[in-house]
Design a binder for these strands. Sequence first.
RNA 1: GAAUCGGUAGCUCAGCCGGAUAGAGCAACGGCCUUCUAAGCCGUGGGUCGGGGGUUCGAAUCCCUUCCGGUUCACCA
Length: 564
Amino acid sequence: MDFKLEIAKAIGKASSLDYTEVLSGIEIPPNSQMGDYAFPCFRLAKTLKKSPQIIAQEISQNIIKPDFIERIEIQGAYINLFTDKENFAKEILKEVLNKKETYGSDTLGNGKTIVIDYSSPNIAKPFHVGHLRSTVIGNAIYKIHEFLGYDCQGVNHLGDWGTQFGKLIVAYKNWGSKTAVEEKGIQELMRIYVIFHDEAEKNPSLEDEARGWFVKMQDGDSEALELWKWFYDISIKEFDRVYKMLDVEFDAYTGESFYNDKMAAVVKELKDKNLLQESEGAMIVDLEEEKMPPCLIIRKDGGTLYATRDITAALYRKNKYNFEKCLYLTALDQNLHFAQWFKVIEKMGYNWSKDLVHVPFGLVSLDTGKLSTRKGNVVLMEELLNQAVKETAKIIEEKNPNLPNKEEIAKQVGIGAVIFNDLYNGRIKDVTFSWERMLSFEGETGPYVQYTNARACSVLKKAENFNLNEIDYSVLKDENSVEVLKLIYDFPNKIKEAANKYEPSMVSRALVDIAQAFNKFYHDNPILNSEENVKNARLAIVLSVNTVLTTGLKLLGIKAPEQM
RNA sequence: GAAUCGGUAGCUCAGCCGGAUAGAGCAACGGCCUUCUAAGCCGUGGGUCGGGGGUUCGAAUCCCUUCCGGUUCACCA
């Protein structure tokens, strides 16, 4: 039941106001002594030409109290409503225990497809902490939307095309060797790539040579493409190791190269629509009216650019998926790029340009400065995950040495900590990578939530069989129980809000809130040693918390071990 | 210079479609394990919500202005 909506309807009737208007005014008081819901009447004073206190009085006198409301109090201009705690507990627990792992899910996305472009690392470059955000935020947004009924299509738009491969080919021919690349993989590709940049500073003709090789790739030159494919395969193999650790999957690996043979048609379309013009030898779409720099489509040497491929990919995706929304999970520094080519799509006459959404996140840096693969200022993803698992294993050895299946649990908790850490703050915030923060397992962290859940599981296991058919809800009126129940009740809203805002942190925050409330409840209320009716009622709460935490962690792409 | 994102406790951040005493975690200090997992719980200290104006019955929240920091701005992605 939507309590807020029912209250709004009741107040609407009592005041002859439209209930949707009332609904937006209903709020949750800062503490529960003031009530569970409140409706401030200040706003009505002007239109009704009465003091807000009097309005509050009048409404409260006329209101027909819904069943779940125990009493109504007036405090100044506030109408404070107190829920009947027994009924409240009953409504919520029944719903969670019935729906189980589907509690919080929805059908609102049924029949709608949402394409999510995330992770998208560059081939031939190591997978480092800079790629973590796009990967885990995208994955969480995927799972959250899926839970709400959407058909999600996760696309890994690999950076597998572009001048950098021309550079790599030049580098390989000059300073590389087959055996070294076969032995050391990306590391070796990276090494020769760095050499290229150093050498190109002294000898700029190398850049032209690199661009030349890229043009050859575009034209289908077999030598160029064979080398490219080789680099590609080596890279994918390494990326897959990381994706497996993070338990992230994609529906498509259509990277930039996939669009090589599809761009000409798009360029022609731009030309036919009179959007393309020459400038300084390059072909651009002018965006002066939009107060943006021009969008580069074709370089003066004929090469295509990032925007060309993004535009082509968008048209392809619209055609293939007929998406409701297409999301792009990239760092904030690409704002302009997306604004530009979204505008180009609009100018092409596609009204679905409004369905293209850049979902940006803040930049990651190290305390030693900006991330730079070339300068070697990076933390590799595998190194981070392995370290987190190692650290977790140490803690398990300390705290729970008899834990079965230790290695697996260490992985679930260690990697969960890394993922949760990234998903806990608003995505727009810049982050400075810190080992200390990554490997802290106390307080607002993934392990804290997992640990809370493991405690709940442990109680449930020890309870063996218990009766959830006849629960005495009257024993759940204490403050701790009510607090847990309120948060569980609100959880489905948090999921929807997270989807609307493309903000997984709404879910992670909700999980920490629930975990905190539950730990307090757990600490203060004996469960298994209580009388039968109390025990069963409290176990219903424990089971509900277990259900919600497991669901929430799953939505974030984090495992919920039953023991740790 | 223009655009864009940030500025809330020592640190990391919530709160920002206006509402009742501004919240967490970490760090510091002090308590709680013969009872369901102490990766936990409780308590103490800690704030000119960057500054200044304005709108409003009411502003951390909206508007203007200003300062500080990040990022981007033509052939990289």
